[in-house]
Each structure stands twice: as C-alpha cells, then as structure tokens.
Design a protein around this nucleic acid. Structure first.
Lengths: 153, 153
DNA sequence: TCTGAAAAAGCTGAGTT
DNA sequence: AACTCAGCTTTTTCAGA
C-alpha cells in the first residue's frame, strides 16, 4: 500500500469505468502494471466491489433520516443484526458508544413511508426507544479520503 | 423507470463489472438493449457514477464517528458547506431538523486523529457545540434498496 | 424499443528486461 | 515489479424489424 496504490484507489473512486491505459497514465504506470496492482487490491480486499452510485431521489427514496435506538438488552448480536437487515429501507446500522445503543440510516420515499419503517424498527426485539433525526438537505456524500494520514500535508 | 430499469440498477449496485451480455440475461434483454438502458440511466443522472468500494480499515480510516453540530447562525449556506468540505475526513454532511443543525460522518485513523478532526470542525464559523457518537462496530453498510415502494410486496 | 451482428476498443496473460 | 505485445473478450455502434 504505497502512494501509487492510494492514487489508483482515489482514481477508481472517482471513476471506475476508465480504461487501465488511462489509469496507468494518471499514476505513471503502463496499462498492464496498473491492471496488476488493481487486481491485487481486489484480491487483498482493499477494493471490496465495484458498484454504481444511484441517485436516491430518482428511485423514490428522497427522504433520509438517522435514527438512534435505545435498548434494554445488549444488541450487538446476530439476531439484532438480522432483524435490522430484514428492513430494506435501512441502509446502514452501527453499534455506538454513548447514551443510545444503535444508529441506523434510513431512506424512505415519503414521511409516511418513514413512519412505517420506524414502526418496524420499534418492533425489533429489545428496542425501548427511538430518536429520529430527519435530514432536510444533504450538503455532500463523497468517497472515502484516501490520503495517507501519516504523510505530511 | 420500470421494473427492468430497477433490476438493472440492483444488479449494477451488486457488481458493476459484469458484462452487458450477462446483465441482459439477468433481466431478460439482449446485451445491446441492456447497454442502451444503462446508457440512458447514466444520461438521466439516475446512475451518478461508477466507483470502487474501498475498505476503510485498509487505508487506515478504521475509526468512524457521527457528529451533531449546534450552531448559533443558519448554516445552510455555501460558506458552511465549503468549510466542511475542506476537511477531508468528513465523508458526509447533512442539514438536519431537530435540536442540532448539522450532522457529519467522519472517518479517521485513530481516536487521536478523530480528536484533531473534531477540533477543526469546532473551528468552523458558527459552530457553538458538538455531540460526538463513536461507532464501536458496523453491522452493515449496503446499497440503496431499489424495490418500488408503490408496488405490492 | 429491441435484436443481431460488425467494428472498435480494451482486457488480460505470456514472455522479457 | 513493470514493460511490451498479441490473442481474445467486451463494448459500442448501427441497420433492420
């Protein structure tokens, strides 16, 4: 994981459709070498997958909310995970430190739809309370910063 | 935006590297037709980009936190947006309803690094307080659910 | 709007430095 | 580890239905 690998990852986060010849040119490598490095990054799991980024509003998921869940039992186990994963509108679920137990990110079509999702979340075993944060506007959602935190700059 | 488009989007979210011939087979279309539909989805902005998904831990961004920002002025304007965008560790920034003003998602390498980022966030014009939620474990982060909310099921 | 096929482009492996 | 080259697959275009 040197500077070239980081540059490749940054370029592929911006546009994974570009040709290896161009990718190589951007980092000072031949197409073959760029290809070999990317292959290894995939093999090592640094690159998990290649996917399209879909505009949520275009598929009727324009309502975004974060919900903090309070619980009366430990919720860090598979049954809780599976119960949350079974709700398709939940895009992320995290165990958190602090006064709540879990934080989930939800995308719904309308406030009414969101309400229905919240009801299902509330019915998950162990949940004793929810605090919902509705997003009014998203400033930005962008790829992970790839720069080396140890490097100067 | 019919069922076939939704199926294409779901398939491309799972794996955008597959050939159009396979993609077409999966949705009952020829390679040419699948290609044409995907081209239009890109053109219309439904597909915003194609990108690799990088494992944060592999690039030394294993610490995840959500931070709610209190403010004494309206923070929904470009200067605030730009000030937050200038902090590379901030992956998402949202204007929210409720007692805080903004919610940001931060990825750092260590708790010390996170602390440094929080200091920079606190220095953003208008910020009067922060509440930090540290993630202990991520259950899942997955693509947007593409199913039609109006459809039965 | 889809199909099928031809032309163009890019991927990917083998051999070499 | 990276480069070059060549065969092969895939993309992308286009005429026809």
């Amino acid at each position: 994981m040197d500077g070239i690998d980081r540059a490749l990852l940054a370029a592929l986060q911006a546009d994974a459709t570009q040709a290896y010849a161009d990718l190589g040119k951007a980092v000072g490598l031949s197409a073959g070498s760029a290809h070999e490095r990317v292959r290894k990054l995939r093999e090592r799991g640094v690159i998990r997958r290649t996917a399209v980024d879909v505009d949520p509003a275009a598929v009727d998921r324009g309502v975004l909310a974060f919900v903090m869940l309070q619980a009366n039992v430990w919720m860090g186990d598979p049954p809780t995970r599976d119960a949350l994963a079974a709700i398709p509108e939940i895009q992320e679920a995290h165990i958190i430190a602090g006064s709540a137990s879990l934080l989930v990110k939800i995308r719904a079509s309308t406030p009414e739809h969101l309400q229905g999702v919240l009801r299902r979340v509330f019915d998950v075993e162990g949940v004793t309370g929810t605090q919902t944060i509705v997003v009014l506007e998203t400033f930005f959602e962008r790829p992970l910063d790839i720069s080396d935190p140890d490097a100067a700059g």
